[in-house]
Protein backbone atom coordinates (compact mmCIF):
# COMPACT_ATOMS: atom_id res chain seq x y z
CA UNK A 1 0.00 0.00 0.00
CA UNK A 2 2.75 2.41 0.94
CA UNK A 3 4.44 1.58 -2.30
CA UNK A 4 1.29 2.46 -4.16
CA UNK A 5 0.73 5.82 -2.48
CA UNK A 6 4.41 6.47 -2.83
CA UNK A 7 4.33 5.98 -6.57
CA UNK A 8 1.12 7.94 -6.82
CA UNK A 9 2.49 10.99 -5.06
CA UNK A 10 5.74 10.81 -6.95
CA UNK A 11 3.92 10.46 -10.19
CA UNK A 12 1.85 13.53 -9.50
CA UNK A 13 4.84 15.62 -8.65
CA UNK A 14 7.73 14.88 -10.89
CA UNK A 15 7.99 16.01 -14.44
CA UNK A 16 8.99 12.63 -15.79
CA UNK A 17 6.04 10.89 -14.20
CA UNK A 18 3.73 13.56 -15.50
CA UNK A 19 4.89 12.59 -18.97
CA UNK A 20 4.15 8.96 -18.14
CA UNK A 21 0.62 9.89 -17.07
CA UNK A 22 0.19 11.92 -20.21
CA UNK A 23 1.50 9.09 -22.38
CA UNK A 24 -0.88 6.64 -20.71
CA UNK A 25 -3.77 9.03 -21.30
CA UNK A 26 -2.93 9.42 -24.98
CA UNK A 27 -2.50 5.67 -25.47
CA UNK A 28 -5.84 5.16 -23.76
CA UNK A 29 -7.48 7.61 -26.15
CA UNK A 30 -6.00 5.86 -29.15
CA UNK A 31 -6.92 2.30 -28.17
CA UNK A 32 -10.41 3.29 -27.02
CA UNK A 33 -12.10 2.47 -30.38
CA UNK A 34 -10.81 -1.10 -30.12
CA UNK A 35 -13.18 -1.96 -27.30
CA UNK A 36 -15.89 0.68 -27.22
CA UNK A 37 -19.00 1.41 -29.22
CA UNK A 38 -19.73 4.41 -31.37
CA UNK A 39 -21.73 6.19 -28.69
CA UNK A 40 -18.79 6.45 -26.32
CA UNK A 41 -16.55 7.65 -29.14
CA UNK A 42 -19.14 10.24 -30.04
CA UNK A 43 -19.17 11.39 -26.40
CA UNK A 44 -15.39 11.65 -26.31
CA UNK A 45 -15.43 13.73 -29.49
CA UNK A 46 -17.98 16.03 -27.92
CA UNK A 47 -15.70 16.29 -24.89
CA UNK A 48 -12.76 17.12 -27.13
CA UNK A 49 -14.70 19.89 -28.85
CA UNK A 50 -15.90 21.32 -25.55
CA UNK A 51 -12.33 21.07 -24.38
CA UNK A 52 -11.09 23.20 -27.30
CA UNK A 53 -13.78 25.78 -26.53
CA UNK A 54 -12.79 25.71 -22.87
CA UNK A 55 -9.17 26.34 -23.80
CA UNK A 56 -10.40 29.26 -25.82
CA UNK A 57 -12.24 30.59 -22.77
CA UNK A 58 -9.45 29.80 -20.33
CA UNK A 59 -6.82 31.50 -22.46
CA UNK A 60 -8.87 34.66 -22.09
CA UNK A 61 -10.24 34.22 -18.56
CA UNK A 62 -7.62 32.27 -16.64
CA UNK A 63 -4.52 33.53 -18.43
CA UNK A 64 -5.40 37.04 -19.54
CA UNK A 65 -8.22 37.99 -17.17
CA UNK A 66 -10.99 38.60 -19.71
CA UNK A 67 -14.44 37.02 -19.62
CA UNK A 68 -15.93 36.58 -23.08
CA UNK A 69 -19.57 35.80 -23.68
CA UNK A 70 -18.97 35.68 -27.41
CA UNK A 71 -16.84 32.59 -27.95
CA UNK A 72 -19.87 30.74 -29.32
CA UNK A 73 -19.79 33.27 -32.15
CA UNK A 74 -16.32 32.16 -33.26
CA UNK A 75 -17.33 28.54 -32.71
CA UNK A 76 -20.20 29.14 -35.16
CA UNK A 77 -17.85 30.90 -37.61
CA UNK A 78 -15.67 27.80 -37.67
CA UNK A 79 -18.62 25.43 -37.93
CA UNK A 80 -20.44 27.31 -40.70
CA UNK A 81 -17.30 27.99 -42.73
CA UNK A 82 -16.20 24.37 -42.50
CA UNK A 83 -19.72 23.18 -43.29
CA UNK A 84 -19.93 25.41 -46.35
CA UNK A 85 -16.57 24.28 -47.66
CA UNK A 86 -17.41 20.60 -47.17
CA UNK A 87 -20.82 21.05 -48.77
CA UNK A 88 -19.03 22.53 -51.76
CA UNK A 89 -17.24 19.21 -52.12
CA UNK A 90 -13.84 19.94 -50.64
CA UNK A 91 -11.95 17.38 -48.59
CA UNK A 92 -11.67 17.47 -44.80
CA UNK A 93 -8.43 19.35 -44.32
CA UNK A 94 -9.32 22.48 -46.32
CA UNK A 95 -12.65 22.52 -44.49
CA UNK A 96 -10.98 22.58 -41.08
CA UNK A 97 -8.28 25.04 -42.11
CA UNK A 98 -10.76 27.46 -43.65
CA UNK A 99 -13.02 27.11 -40.61
CA UNK A 100 -10.17 28.11 -38.32
CA UNK A 101 -9.07 30.89 -40.67
CA UNK A 102 -12.55 32.42 -40.85
CA UNK A 103 -12.81 32.36 -37.05
CA UNK A 104 -9.36 33.96 -36.81
CA UNK A 105 -10.29 36.75 -39.22
CA UNK A 106 -13.54 37.39 -37.35
CA UNK A 107 -11.59 37.46 -34.08
CA UNK A 108 -9.06 39.95 -35.44
CA UNK A 109 -11.75 42.29 -36.71
CA UNK A 110 -14.03 42.10 -33.67
CA UNK A 111 -11.09 41.86 -31.29
CA UNK A 112 -9.76 45.15 -32.57
CA UNK A 113 -12.73 46.77 -30.85
CA UNK A 114 -13.08 44.40 -27.89
CA UNK A 115 -9.54 44.60 -26.56
CA UNK A 116 -9.86 48.30 -25.86
CA UNK A 117 -12.12 47.37 -22.97
CA UNK A 118 -11.81 45.20 -19.91
CA UNK A 119 -14.04 43.61 -17.32
CA UNK A 120 -17.70 44.40 -17.77
CA UNK A 121 -17.42 46.34 -21.01
CA UNK A 122 -15.38 43.58 -22.59
CA UNK A 123 -17.96 41.00 -21.52
CA UNK A 124 -20.81 43.13 -22.87
CA UNK A 125 -19.10 43.86 -26.17
CA UNK A 126 -18.26 40.21 -26.79
CA UNK A 127 -21.87 39.40 -25.93
CA UNK A 128 -23.10 41.95 -28.49
CA UNK A 129 -20.78 40.65 -31.22
CA UNK A 130 -21.63 37.05 -30.41
CA UNK A 131 -25.33 37.80 -30.68
CA UNK A 132 -24.76 39.68 -33.94
CA UNK A 133 -23.21 36.52 -35.34
CA UNK A 134 -26.17 34.58 -33.92
CA UNK A 135 -28.71 36.77 -35.66
CA UNK A 136 -26.70 36.58 -38.89
CA UNK A 137 -26.74 32.79 -38.81
CA UNK A 138 -30.46 32.93 -38.20
CA UNK A 139 -31.46 35.50 -40.76
CA UNK A 140 -28.97 35.26 -43.59
CA UNK A 141 -30.99 32.38 -44.98
CA UNK A 142 -29.34 32.17 -48.40
CA UNK A 143 -25.96 31.52 -46.92
CA UNK A 144 -26.66 29.80 -43.62
CA UNK A 145 -29.96 28.07 -44.23
CA UNK A 146 -31.69 30.11 -41.52
CA UNK A 147 -33.22 28.25 -38.62
CA UNK A 148 -32.81 24.91 -40.38
CA UNK A 149 -29.09 25.50 -40.61
CA UNK A 150 -26.71 23.68 -42.91
CA UNK A 151 -27.92 20.15 -43.51
CA UNK A 152 -26.17 17.09 -44.85
CA UNK A 153 -22.61 18.22 -44.37
CA UNK A 154 -20.49 15.35 -45.68
CA UNK A 155 -17.82 13.83 -43.52
CA UNK A 156 -15.37 14.21 -46.35
CA UNK A 157 -12.30 12.07 -46.72
CA UNK A 158 -8.97 13.28 -45.45
CA UNK A 159 -6.73 13.48 -48.48
CA UNK A 160 -3.58 15.34 -49.17
CA UNK A 161 -2.83 15.64 -52.90
CA UNK A 162 -2.11 12.06 -53.91
CA UNK A 163 -0.10 11.21 -50.84
CA UNK A 164 -2.90 9.78 -48.73
CA UNK A 165 -6.64 9.46 -48.83
CA UNK A 166 -8.40 8.28 -45.69
CA UNK A 167 -12.14 7.76 -45.59
CA UNK A 168 -13.89 9.47 -42.66
CA UNK A 169 -17.39 8.09 -42.92
CA UNK A 170 -17.15 5.74 -39.94
CA UNK A 171 -17.24 7.10 -36.42
CA UNK A 172 -13.91 5.53 -35.32
CA UNK A 173 -12.08 7.01 -38.33
CA UNK A 174 -13.32 10.50 -37.61
CA UNK A 175 -12.64 9.91 -33.92
CA UNK A 176 -8.93 9.48 -34.62
CA UNK A 177 -8.91 12.65 -36.65
CA UNK A 178 -10.66 14.68 -33.92
CA UNK A 179 -8.41 13.35 -31.15
CA UNK A 180 -5.26 13.98 -33.16
CA UNK A 181 -6.32 17.52 -34.07
CA UNK A 182 -7.29 18.29 -30.48
CA UNK A 183 -4.08 16.93 -29.02
CA UNK A 184 -1.93 18.87 -31.49
CA UNK A 185 -3.90 22.04 -30.76
CA UNK A 186 -3.52 21.58 -27.01
CA UNK A 187 0.20 20.93 -27.37
CA UNK A 188 0.64 24.14 -29.36
CA UNK A 189 -1.29 26.08 -26.74
CA UNK A 190 0.89 24.57 -24.04
CA UNK A 191 3.95 25.87 -25.85
CA UNK A 192 2.38 29.29 -26.29
CA UNK A 193 1.50 29.62 -22.63
CA UNK A 194 5.00 28.76 -21.50
CA UNK A 195 6.60 31.06 -24.04
CA UNK A 196 7.35 34.76 -23.62
CA UNK A 197 4.00 35.57 -25.22
CA UNK A 198 2.19 33.43 -22.65
CA UNK A 199 4.07 35.10 -19.84
CA UNK A 200 2.91 38.47 -21.14
CA UNK A 201 -0.71 37.25 -21.18
CA UNK A 202 -0.43 36.22 -17.54
CA UNK A 203 1.18 39.53 -16.71
CA UNK A 204 -1.80 41.33 -18.23
CA UNK A 205 -4.11 39.27 -16.05
CA UNK A 206 -2.16 40.25 -12.93
CA UNK A 207 -1.58 43.90 -13.70
CA UNK A 208 -2.32 45.61 -16.95
CA UNK A 209 -0.60 48.89 -16.06
CA UNK A 210 2.53 47.08 -14.98
CA UNK A 211 2.76 45.32 -18.32
CA UNK A 212 2.49 48.58 -20.22
CA UNK A 213 5.19 50.05 -17.95
CA UNK A 214 7.65 47.33 -18.81
CA UNK A 215 7.39 48.37 -22.43
CA UNK A 216 4.76 46.03 -23.83
CA UNK A 217 1.64 47.13 -25.68
CA UNK A 218 -1.29 45.70 -23.75
CA UNK A 219 -3.76 46.16 -26.56
CA UNK A 220 -1.63 44.42 -29.11
CA UNK A 221 -0.95 41.49 -26.80
CA UNK A 222 -4.63 41.24 -25.93
CA UNK A 223 -5.54 41.24 -29.61
CA UNK A 224 -3.11 38.39 -30.24
CA UNK A 225 -4.64 36.52 -27.32
CA UNK A 226 -8.17 37.19 -28.54
CA UNK A 227 -7.27 35.95 -32.01
CA UNK A 228 -5.70 32.75 -30.73
CA UNK A 229 -8.76 32.19 -28.54
CA UNK A 230 -10.99 32.75 -31.57
CA UNK A 231 -8.99 30.18 -33.56
CA UNK A 232 -9.43 27.56 -30.84
CA UNK A 233 -13.17 28.17 -30.70
CA UNK A 234 -13.21 28.05 -34.51
CA UNK A 235 -11.34 24.74 -34.53
CA UNK A 236 -13.91 23.33 -32.13
CA UNK A 237 -16.69 24.44 -34.45
CA UNK A 238 -14.93 23.18 -37.56
CA UNK A 239 -14.54 19.74 -35.99
CA UNK A 240 -18.20 19.78 -34.96
CA UNK A 241 -19.62 20.34 -38.45
CA UNK A 242 -18.59 16.99 -39.99
CA UNK A 243 -19.38 15.19 -36.73
CA UNK A 244 -22.97 16.36 -36.43
CA UNK A 245 -23.35 16.81 -40.19
CA UNK A 246 -25.81 19.57 -39.34
CA UNK A 247 -25.16 23.04 -38.00
CA UNK A 248 -27.93 25.24 -36.64
CA UNK A 249 -27.88 28.85 -35.39
CA UNK A 250 -28.14 27.67 -31.78
CA UNK A 251 -24.40 26.89 -31.98
CA UNK A 252 -23.73 30.63 -31.78
CA UNK A 253 -26.22 31.53 -29.06
CA UNK A 254 -24.62 33.14 -26.03
CA UNK A 255 -25.88 30.37 -23.77
CA UNK A 256 -23.40 28.19 -25.68
CA UNK A 257 -20.61 30.48 -24.60
CA UNK A 258 -21.30 29.58 -21.00
CA UNK A 259 -20.76 25.78 -21.23
CA UNK A 260 -17.01 26.19 -21.72
CA UNK A 261 -16.90 28.83 -18.98
CA UNK A 262 -18.50 26.34 -16.60
CA UNK A 263 -16.22 23.52 -17.73
CA UNK A 264 -13.19 25.73 -17.23
CA UNK A 265 -14.34 26.74 -13.78
CA UNK A 266 -15.01 23.12 -12.87
CA UNK A 267 -11.59 21.96 -13.97
CA UNK A 268 -9.65 24.92 -12.67
CA UNK A 269 -8.96 28.11 -14.52
CA UNK A 270 -5.40 28.81 -13.42
CA UNK A 271 -4.29 25.36 -14.38
CA UNK A 272 -3.22 24.20 -17.80
CA UNK A 273 -5.00 20.85 -17.56
CA UNK A 274 -8.10 22.52 -16.06
CA UNK A 275 -10.11 22.65 -19.29
CA UNK A 276 -9.47 18.97 -20.12
CA UNK A 277 -10.41 17.83 -16.63
CA UNK A 278 -13.37 20.23 -16.61
CA UNK A 279 -14.76 19.10 -19.97
CA UNK A 280 -14.54 15.45 -19.01
CA UNK A 281 -16.14 16.04 -15.62
CA UNK A 282 -18.83 18.22 -17.18
CA UNK A 283 -19.87 15.50 -19.61
CA UNK A 284 -19.65 12.69 -17.07
CA UNK A 285 -21.61 14.69 -14.50
CA UNK A 286 -24.27 15.47 -17.05
CA UNK A 287 -24.44 11.87 -18.21
CA UNK A 288 -24.74 10.57 -14.67
CA UNK A 289 -27.08 13.21 -13.27
CA UNK A 290 -29.46 13.03 -16.21
CA UNK A 291 -29.92 9.32 -15.51
CA UNK A 292 -31.21 10.00 -12.00
CA UNK A 293 -33.05 13.26 -12.24
CA UNK A 294 -34.53 15.67 -14.72
CA UNK A 295 -33.03 18.56 -12.80
CA UNK A 296 -29.59 18.69 -14.34
CA UNK A 297 -29.54 22.48 -14.64
CA UNK A 298 -30.46 22.95 -10.99
CA UNK A 299 -27.62 20.76 -9.85
CA UNK A 300 -25.21 22.36 -12.31
CA UNK A 301 -26.26 25.79 -11.05
CA UNK A 302 -25.67 24.78 -7.45
CA UNK A 303 -22.27 23.33 -8.33
CA UNK A 304 -21.22 26.58 -10.00
CA UNK A 305 -22.47 28.65 -7.07
CA UNK A 306 -20.49 26.53 -4.63
CA UNK A 307 -17.39 26.68 -6.83
CA UNK A 308 -17.52 30.45 -7.26
CA UNK A 309 -18.17 31.12 -3.59
CA UNK A 310 -15.78 28.64 -2.07
CA UNK A 311 -13.18 27.39 -4.47
CA UNK A 312 -12.42 29.24 -7.62
CA UNK A 313 -9.42 27.04 -8.37
CA UNK A 314 -11.72 24.22 -9.50
CA UNK A 315 -10.93 20.53 -9.31
CA UNK A 316 -7.28 20.86 -10.31
CA UNK A 317 -6.79 23.76 -7.91
CA UNK A 318 -8.35 21.81 -5.06
CA UNK A 319 -6.21 18.85 -5.97
CA UNK A 320 -3.03 20.90 -5.73
CA UNK A 321 -4.05 22.83 -2.62
CA UNK A 322 -5.62 20.12 -0.49
CA UNK A 323 -5.30 16.60 -1.79
CA UNK A 324 -1.62 16.71 -2.66
CA UNK A 325 -0.41 17.99 0.73
CA UNK A 326 -2.70 15.50 2.43
CA UNK A 327 -1.32 12.62 0.41
CA UNK A 328 2.20 13.75 1.18
CA UNK A 329 1.58 13.98 4.88
CA UNK A 330 0.03 10.52 4.87
CA UNK A 331 3.10 9.29 3.11
CA UNK A 332 5.43 10.86 5.63
CA UNK A 333 3.51 9.31 8.54
CA UNK A 334 3.67 5.95 6.82
CA UNK A 335 7.42 6.10 6.41
Amino acid sequence: MTWLTNTLVLSINSHRFKLVWLGAFIIFLFILPLFSGDYLLYMVMQMAILCLLSYSVNLLLGYTGLLSFGQAGFYACGAYACGKVLLAGASLLPGIVIGVAVAAIAAIILGFFCVRHTAIYFAMLTLAFGMMIFSLTQKWVNFTGGDDGLIGIPRAALNFFYIFNIKMDTIPAYYYFVIAATLIAIYILYRILNSPLGLIFQGIRDSETRVSFVGISVRKSRLICFTIAGMYAGLGGALLAPLEQTITPSASHWINSTDPIIATLLGGMYNFSGPIVGSVIYFLLKDIIVRFTMNWMLILGIIIIILVLTFRGGVMGAFRAYLLPWLKSRLRQGA
Partner: peptide, 29 residues
Protein backbone atom coordinates in the same frame (compact mmCIF):
# COMPACT_ATOMS: atom_id res chain seq x y z
CA UNK B 1 2.18 46.95 -8.62
CA UNK B 2 3.81 43.60 -9.23
CA UNK B 3 2.46 40.43 -10.84
CA UNK B 4 1.19 38.69 -7.71
CA UNK B 5 0.35 35.32 -9.28
CA UNK B 6 3.63 34.94 -11.14
CA UNK B 7 6.88 33.76 -9.62
CA UNK B 8 9.58 36.20 -8.61
CA UNK B 9 11.69 35.08 -11.55
CA UNK B 10 8.82 35.60 -14.01
CA UNK B 11 8.29 39.05 -12.53
CA UNK B 12 11.73 40.17 -13.66
CA UNK B 13 11.67 38.16 -16.89
CA UNK B 14 8.67 40.08 -18.16
CA UNK B 15 10.38 43.49 -18.35
CA UNK B 16 13.34 41.85 -20.09
CA UNK B 17 11.25 40.34 -22.87
CA UNK B 18 10.52 43.63 -24.50
CA UNK B 19 14.03 44.97 -23.91
CA UNK B 20 15.56 41.94 -25.60
CA UNK B 21 12.92 41.82 -28.34
CA UNK B 22 11.42 38.50 -27.31
CA UNK B 23 7.88 39.67 -26.64
CA UNK B 24 6.37 38.01 -29.69
CA UNK B 25 8.17 34.69 -29.40
CA UNK B 26 5.50 32.08 -28.93
CA UNK B 27 6.92 28.59 -29.21
CA UNK B 28 9.89 28.00 -26.93
CA UNK B 29 9.68 28.25 -23.16
Amino acid sequence: NIFPMLTVLQNVELPLLSLLGKNLKWFYA
